[in-house]
């Protein structure tokens, strides 16, 4: 009962947040930034957290989404948001193309292959004139209609992002309880055992990867609508991929709300430390940011949510070490 009350209070808080900070643009924007980061990290969570396939190349999908949005504007004159479905579709196809060869790989090999694919796409994008090359492409400089989603305040973005995140978390929640969720957990715990039990592990990993890619792409399209510019580095850069992983891991990967919690901590931390320390130009922002991540990882290696939900089924320390390269 208490838990529902707590949860309900959080939902209400999320809904009224913009009213609480109304007239303070920086905090209005902060809310939107947190939700946007949470969408990306939650999308990553489907394959990285639930299925345990640690992709460090999700920027590929993010970039596809961002570029799809800007390309329909640049080449067709459509509002950028119209590119979002296109980006999602392309990302699903792309996920299949990348996933078939890479998802066979285990553990770190998969992570490294996704890094390589991410870098590959980044370099190729910078040589494509269609994508604006290394200079990147800008969205509509001036809003032409309401569909360009060019708002003075970040509050409309906040509610758009909130709706998307709610849908994504709902979908994840449903998957968690559906057959696919069972399969994914089984694959994560031991792929060999899952296969022995007749789970077609390759297929379910691929489904998770495609779904994850589609929503990461949506996050990219939304990013473009808000910021209005993308170049190879801000679309496909490895930092984009790493941040998704870090946010999910910080909150608790494989946990429905883990990525949101991670975003709630890291985004304000990054913004505030940059605002208060960045102007000195001594790199102090990242000294603080890095130190806080290290401290959290040191004391809560399974993420912040492990504080509230001790999971006895989690492997004991020694078996983690024992995993060696025997897996």
């Amino acid at each position: 009962m208490n838990r529902y009350l707590f949860f309900g209070a959080l939902v209400v808080l999320a809904l009224v947040y913009p009213l609480l900070v109304q007239g303070i643009p920086v905090w209005e924007r902060m809310g939107a930034l947190v939700l946007l980061a949470a969408i990306g990290a939650s999308a990553w969570n489907i394959v990285g957290g639930y299925a345990g396939q640690v992709s460090v190349g999700h920027a590929v999908f993010f970039g596809f989404g961002a570029y799809a949005a800007v390309v329909v504007y640049t080449h067709l004159g459509w509002p950028p948001i119209a590119g979002a479905p296109l980006g999602m579709l392309l990302s699903v196809i792309l996920a299949a193309v990348i996933g078939v060869p890479t998802l066979r790989l285990s553990g770190h090999y998969f992570s490294m292959a996704t890094i390589a694919v991410g870098e590959l796409v980044r370099v190729l994008s910078s040589t494509s004139d269609f994508l604006g090359g290394a200079q990147g492409l800008g969205g509509p400089a001036m809003p032409r209609s309401v569909f360009d989603l060019s708002f003075l305040s970040a509050t409309p973005f906040y509610y758009i992002f909130l709706a998307v995140l709610a849908f994504l978390l709902g979908l994840t929640w449903w998957i968690e309880r559906a057959r696919m969720g069972f399969y994914l957990r089984a694959i994560k715990d031991s792929e060999r055992a899952a296969r022995a039990l007749g789970v077609s592990s390759g297929r379910y990993k691929l489904y998770a990867y495609m779904l994850s890619g589609a929503f990461t792409s949506l996050a990219g399209s939304l990013y473009l609508c808000m910021f209005g510019f993308v170049d190879p580095e801000s679309g496909f850069g490895i930092l984009i991929s790493v941040k998704m992983v870090v946010m999910a891991a910080l909150g608790g990967a494989g946990n429905l709300f883990g990525p949101l919690v991670g975003a709630l901590i890291l985004v304000p931390l990054e913004e505030l430390s940059n605002s208060y320390l960045g102007g000195r130009g001594a790199g102090l922002t990242f000294v603080v940011y890095g130190a806080i991540i290290v401290i959290i990882a040191r004391f809560l290696p399974s993420g912040l949510l492990s504080l509230f939900r001790p999971r006895p089924s989690k492997p004991a320390p020694k078996s983690e070490i024992a995993s060696g390269h025997a897996d």
Partner: peptide
């Protein structure tokens, strides 16, 4: 090392 593999990336 006590946490999941992800903790290594994070830390």
């Amino acid at each position: 090392m006590r946490g999941p593999m992800l903790a290594q990336i994070l830390g």
